[in-house]
Design a protein around this nucleic acid. Sequence first.
DNA 1: GATTTCGATTTCCAAAGGTTATGGATATAA
DNA 2: TTATATCCATAACCTTTGGAAATCGAAATC
Lengths: 289, 289
Amino acid sequence: MDINDLQTFLAVAESGSFSRAAERAFITQPAISKRIAALEAELGARLFDRVGRRIQLAPAGIALLPQARTILDGVGEAKRRIAALSRDIAGPLRLGTSYHVGLHRLPPALRQFYIAHPNVQLDLRFMDSEAACHAVEQGDLDLAVVTLPRGSNARLRREKVWDDPLEIVVAAAHPLAAARRLRLQALAEYPIILPVPGATTREIVLAALAPVRRNLRIGLETNYLELIKMLVSIGLGWSALPHTLIDGDLKVVQIEGISIVRELGVVTHAARTLSNAASAIIEAIRATK
Amino acid sequence: MDINDLQTFLAVAESGSFSRAAERAFITQPAISKRIAALEAELGARLFDRVGRRIQLAPAGIALLPQARTILDGVGEAKRRIAALSRDIAGPLRLGTSYHVGLHRLPPALRQFYIAHPNVQLDLRFMDSEAACHAVEQGDLDLAVVTLPRGSNARLRREKVWDDPLEIVVAAAHPLAAARRLRLQALAEYPIILPVPGATTREIVLAALAPVRRNLRIGLETNYLELIKMLVSIGLGWSALPHTLIDGDLKVVQIEGISIVRELGVVTHAARTLSNAASAIIEAIRATK
DNA sequence: GATTTCGATTTCCAAAGGTTATGGATATAA
DNA sequence: TTATATCCATAACCTTTGGAAATCGAAATC
């Protein structure tokens, strides 16, 4: 049974004539005859009584009429709902973000998006970047705004939004803070404070420090950059931190030939269709770049 | 858009696989691919995300799913109404019944119906009463002949056919079997054997035993009254059973002020048109009352 | 009785919808 | 890792369906 058949039935029933239904549907009258005949065959009942040169609804037709309307209403509603998906920015949006990105990069985009799209139910979850990427891969999050992972993963689509340069820092009161120029070796004599193993930022920092990696003394590990900043500022060691975290308690140390940059951005599933809400918030994030 | 396309969509969404949907519909997998592709083209939206070798509902698919069900329900209702106009009693009839009712109450009606209406393809399924009611609600069964549920459910139409009084029984050799008159407290010292949690009969029995409910020792649980009878008759505890199951191995114990009655009958969907076959078998069941 | 109007029927063609065979991607097993 | 199996997409092919055009027969209308 085709939806067109039901529409045809309705047109015939309402116009009381095969010919007029044909005009209305912009097809020929024999086509109408065929469609009705097919419907009658499928339902095993006569829908119209052909009385001479006019027609009349048969009992089965009377029974079908309201049902046909119901069914066609349902089809229309389905089409409308799907069409609305391409217009409306609404519905649930599960967004994961790392602590640092969520606190220092995301707020403007979030604020703008929240005002512009009140019909989105935003489910914002803080977690570390790696967990967020994994959740996106599993379909548990619509998108993640995090430190972009280094390796390539075919299941994830990554879009860099911000470069986030990291500076090597020591406490303002640290012995090395006075030095104008410093060699890496000198730093390596003091303990480094690093993100926990597995964290992308840790990998990036260690890769940049490759020349002295063997000599590094790892002092403390934490999963939270703010904590690293605090630990460095009270003199427990040195580290690499983004500009946004550096203040008077810290001294930036320039080292020849060493530059550390991590990339922050959006991670989505490569094969899943983005909801409008997800696309919209990505657009908002790009706009704050 | 064809009704078959929607059915295909539903089959794919429910089975989570094009291949399984193909098996279910008795057509080849490429045909399913084509149908879904045609639907997607017509609706202008992707319905499934093909993630590697598996698929997942895309946003438009999520929106379509409930609508597709509504539409297909409408089509089914239309066919049923038209079929009901004809007098002949034929076609498929899916009947669910509980073990006990199916074995002890239904056979005469079934036999008569089967002889009188050979053109009905009867699909008789044994299951517990609660599952049968649920299946009726979902449209997976045309009717259920079961222990009537206690709570009211607007989606179900219930018709009591039989009162089924339950008697408290112990084994013939049980210490309490000798007593002429018994108080409930005395019984409560021995373990009771009950239907599994969730079963309506269990609720009815427990409600009737409310005065001593706190003190009841629940010995064993099973989903099958015949089994309860066996367990009671070998002396593992007492229980409440319908007359039909009581024989010389059991002794009925009368207790002042306690009477337990469950209702057996027919459950149908409140909003669906009954097929002629369904109406006929209900009539046959009433006749055996 | 001629004419008009309407639905049914026939013939023809294009499109739709199915099957088989095959390919690419990806889980699963060895 | 390699082999294998599984799953969806695609291509080629064929049958069936569905529409147009032409025509027919019956019944209102003039």
